[in-house]
């Protein structure tokens, strides 16, 4: 089979989405969560982590470019897939169609994905590009660098609520993502389906809980 045929086929597209998604979970979301959780260990630990990232310089840039590529692939192929799927039922059902509760996260994937994308843009603008504007780093009269910036941004209740909401959405997205990607790449052998589904929910919940715990920390302090 030619690679072009594979890429344009429904399974090819799915597998590309699944693969890029798995890569993003493994090398973006999980390390990002672990890094952010350093905040729970205080200003020094967190700023140390930020410094470590900056010290990587060129290497970090390559990694970031790879993230960007994976995101673009994931998003572009999803958009193609979703439009095709929409067209595949040009005449919709006129009566209410029963659907299984377990497929809720699946049916929401394009929407949760779109919300996450919007958040990503805002988030990049906030942290990665806006660098450390001196004033926003001052927390309780002390310049605490990136740590101060995070604490300041959570002082705004809108931001705080918004962030918590987005993390719920991310959790919902991931709870379907992992098991779905494994199914698509046939890495979910029949006999272990139950455990892989459980693992997928566990991933979704722990990512939400992990990120939200940072908010709780910020509120408490």
């Amino acid at each position: 089979m030619k690679i072009s045929k594979y890429i344009s086929s429904s399974i090819g597209k799915k597998q590309i989405i699944a693969f890029s998604g798995l890569v993003l979970i493994a090398i973006f979301i999980l390390p990002h969560l672990l890094g952010n959780l350093q905040i729970l260990r205080g200003a020094q630990a967190f700023n140390g982590y930020a410094k470590l990232l900056h010290s990587m310089g060129f290497v970090l840039e390559i990694i970031e470019a790879f993230f960007a590529l994976m995101f673009v692939v994931h998003i572009v192929f999803t958009i193609i897939l979703v439009t095709e799927n929409f067209r595949a039922r040009s005449i919709r059902y006129k009566s209410a169609i029963a659907s299984e509760p377990r497929s809720f996260a699946s049916r929401m994937m394009p929407y949760t994905g779109a919300i996450i994308l919007l958040f990503l843009v805002v988030h990049l603008y906030d942290f990665a590009f806006a660098k450390e504007a001196a004033t926003s780093c001052v927390w309780r009269g002390e310049d605490l660098g990136l740590y101060g910036m995070v604490m300041n941004s959570f002082a705004n209740p809108w931001r705080l609520g918004g962030y918590a909401f987005i993390m719920l959405i991310v959790g919902l997205h991931l709870s379907h993502a992992l098991q779905s990607a494994l199914q698509t790449l046939n890495l979910r052998p029949g006999r272990y389906v139950f455990w892989f589904n459980l693992l997928s929910y566990f991933l979704g919940i722990s990512v939400t809980v992990g990120f939200v715990s940072i908010i709780i920390y910020a509120v408490v302090h």
């Binding site: 799915k14 497929s103 049916r107």
Partner: peptide, 11 residues
């Protein structure tokens, strides 16, 4: 044939 793409809803 114009069928859609599976998104693992398992319906």
């Amino acid at each position: 044939e114009g069928f859609g793409n599976c998104s693992n809803s398992y319906e």
